[in-house]
Amino acid sequence: MTVYLDHAATTPMLPAAAEAMTARLADVGNPSSLHASGRQARRVVEESREKIAQALNCRPGEVVFTSGGTEADNLALKGLFWARRGADPGRTRILSTAVEHHAVLDPLHWLTEREGAEVELLPVDQRARLEVDALREAVERDPDSVALISLMWANNEVGTLEPVGDAVEIAAEHGIPVHTDAVQALGSVPVDFAASGVDALTLTGHKIGGPFGVGALVVARELDLVPLVHGGGQERDVRSGTIDTPAIAGFAAAVEVAVKQQADHATRVAALRDDLVRRVIEVVPDAHLHGPQLEQSHERLPGNAHLGFPDCEGDSLLMLLDARGIECSTGSACSAGVPQPSHVLLAMGCTDEAARHSLRFSLGHTSTQADVDALVEAIGPVVERARSAQR
């Protein structure tokens, strides 16, 4: 039996999403065609757009379909930067954090190298939470030079919920647009586009029980975006390309279910997460939780447990658990087969060694008490074996 504890990477498709997608796989018709089959496909797409808009409290026209979260982040960052700098060449600064996902960090690096952007990655505290005063100081130093602010809704590694509301409040004083990557947040915590005040919001299907290869950028109608892809002018002329009708139908069904069940889901997986953390630390007393602690659980994603195991290599722990049928992820990236310390943990003040000895256990809609029990049973021997290999 496989114990799957990597829902933050991807989560199994919900039955409603699989049904909605497969029901359209055999249909013919390009949504841009004017004949009956095309109009039927267009109807499916627009009804899906309306479902997503209702679930996120935005206007249907603000939902721009993409191939997923990475494309949506790239469209938001590059499209907004180009539009803002085009209107005012002095707007060259982009403010973000050092703990963003690489789908944000890498486009920011590209904009720096290729487009002359001045990117400032603002500091975070020991919980991976943005230092709001640092953001305020960076904005007020020269607000007219800021093209945009990008701040993730929830951290993908340690689960920290970021102060998006504070960022919006600071930005609004100076008319600066705010983008947020909400890929990890949707379905786990309440996500309301209109109430949040953000101007652009990234989401993707496969993190919430939808299909791979489909996502969206929710972007305010009044916001100007320069497209990344030019072609047929689909999706408000900012994301050309033939629309994937079956995937969008499955995506919309997943969004609808995830938002509807969010509160119950959060309560259930948070209880499992708390049990996992407490019992793992009982078995491995020097293990420790990264990010907000259990008594600060309102500040982190309900299904996230990011634990450090001193004197271990995270990759070794991962493979030893995998050999026992328990699947999770490390808190670090791997480049060309060489383990790299997690940029998130380094930004939180961890040493290189501490940034390598961690595992992320993330729970989702299929997680059970039996999954937690299996991990607790396995973690002691696995840690002991990993430490023996280090000696």
Rank of each mutant, 00 (worst) to 15 (best):
A182C: 10
W153F: 13
L135Y: 05
T204Y: 09
R141C: 05
K207L: 15
R127G: 09
D106H: 00
V219W: 05
H179T: 08
V164N: 01
N155A: 12
E120R: 14
T204D: 10
L135V: 04
P143E: 09
R127L: 12
W110Q: 14
G116C: 07
T160I: 09
D133W: 03
W153K: 11
A194L: 10
A216H: 13
R141P: 07
S196I: 03
T160D: 06
H206C: 15
V164D: 06
D142Q: 14
G215I: 14
V219T: 12
P163K: 10
L161T: 04
P211W: 12
V218A: 05
G116W: 01
T204Q: 13
V164I: 07
E131K: 01
V158G: 01
G197L: 05
G205H: 11
N156A: 15
D142F: 09
T112H: 13
V132W: 01
R114W: 08
D144L: 12
P143H: 06
I170C: 05
A220C: 10
E157L: 13
A167R: 04
D181E: 08
S188C: 14
V178L: 03
E169A: 13
L223M: 10
D166G: 04
A216Y: 13
G197A: 07
E113M: 09
G187P: 11
A182Q: 08
G187S: 11
L108F: 04
A200M: 15
L161H: 06
A138P: 01
R127I: 00
D192I: 03
E157R: 08
E115F: 03
E169C: 01
G210E: 13
V214R: 15
F212Y: 15
K207W: 09
Q126W: 00
D106C: 00
V164R: 00
E115K: 04
R136C: 00
N155F: 12
A171N: 09
H206F: 15
R136S: 08
L201R: 02
T202R: 09
P190V: 04
E120L: 00
S196F: 02
W110A: 14
L108G: 04
L130E: 04
R129M: 14
P107Q: 11
D166R: 14
P163W: 07
A134Y: 06
D133G: 14
S196L: 05
E173C: 10
P190H: 07
V164Q: 07
G187L: 10
V183A: 15
A128Q: 03
E162R: 07
T112D: 10
E118G: 01
G215H: 08
